[in-house]
Design a protein around this nucleic acid. Structure first.
Ligand SMILES: [Mn+2]
Ligand SMILES: [Mn+2]
Ligand SMILES: [Zn+2]
Ligand SMILES: [Zn+2]
Lengths: 148, 148
DNA sequence: GGCTAATTGCAACATTGTTGCATTTAGTCT
DNA sequence: AGACTAAATGCAACAATGTTGCAATTAGCC
């Protein structure tokens, strides 16, 4: 929720400004990762003009407060829905419609840690993206094939 | 090995040009992901001048032939050491010295697939980066703490 | 309603990435 | 070895993205 993020800003002593609310609203409404310039374009379509520098700075802040994530593959930003589960960030990205869903799994993290330890590597952060088809797109794809 | 990559180029009908050999050599010698402009700078230090457009095109080709990978987090390029294990690419990145090691684990992939299936998601590709400390850096870090 | 530190806007700049076309070159065939 | 030709590179111009310093504005406070 946008309201929760505003709470975080306030309790951490950051001002709740118009630009920050606007960026929050955009991230909240988006089903896909957005670049800073994506966000600027979307806002402009609503008649709202934000300087790109401001958007960069707001996104930096949001990431530092774990209100948003910067994605591995594209560099796009998404609102954070799970908080920082001990430095683990996992996403499912549909390569057909672009929608994204965040998830977490303690078991995966453990297995990953064990495995990398065999290489004498001490893992602290996990980043992963599983790309494929969301349920909707899988159904559509399947129908198409069936009709052929 | 560079020689293996040259083999791939030849058997796939691509010319083995001086620029391609130069980029191969750089990727092969690097312990860390390199951006196209990184590569240009490194070559320039050796007195070799490549147009950046050429480097972009060479890296595109190498990725399409699985001779190189484009990394998730930074967009940097690394030489591929494992080939394409069924669309799975996993890396350990040391956040202290920047070194990178590729790995693969069938078990991780399976667990990831199972987990995402619970969300009705059909995973096709796996991308993950485990960041932390390599054995060298872990040792150094440890020594420092001990001496304090 | 003023005060002030925090935030934003602006301008200028730097870096990265893309496209079309002229030039060069690797591999092939005499 | 030299000529031929498709493939690859270089060049120029441009587009997009990201950064910095400083002036103007504003949210939260009294
Ligand atoms: Mn998160
Ligand atoms: Mn690989
Ligand atoms: Zn989809
Ligand atoms: Zn290290």
């Amino acid at each position: 929720m946008v309201q929760d993020s505003i709470q975080v800003l306030q309790t951490q002593g950051y001002k709740v400004t118009k630009p920050r609310r606007q960026v929050l609203a955009i991230l909240n409404g988006a089903q896909r990762p957005l670049s800073p310039y994506d966000i600027q374009r979307l806002l402009r379509q609503q008649g709202k003009h934000l300087n790109h520098v401001t958007i960069y700075r707001i996104l930096d802040l949001f990431c530092s407060l774990n209100l948003a994530h910067k994605l591995l593959s594209t560099g796009g930003f998404v609102k954070c829905v799970l908080g920082d589960k001990e430095g683990c960030h996992r996403f499912m990205v549909c390569h057909r419609c672009g929608t994204l869903q965040e998830f977490a799994d303690e078991g995966l993290c453990q297995e990953e840690n064990e495995f990398t330890r065999n290489f004498d590597f001490h893992t602290k952060y996990h980043l992963s993206e599983s790309s494929g088809l969301c349920s909707n797109c899988y159904r559509k794809q399947h129908q198409k094939q069936g009709n052929a």
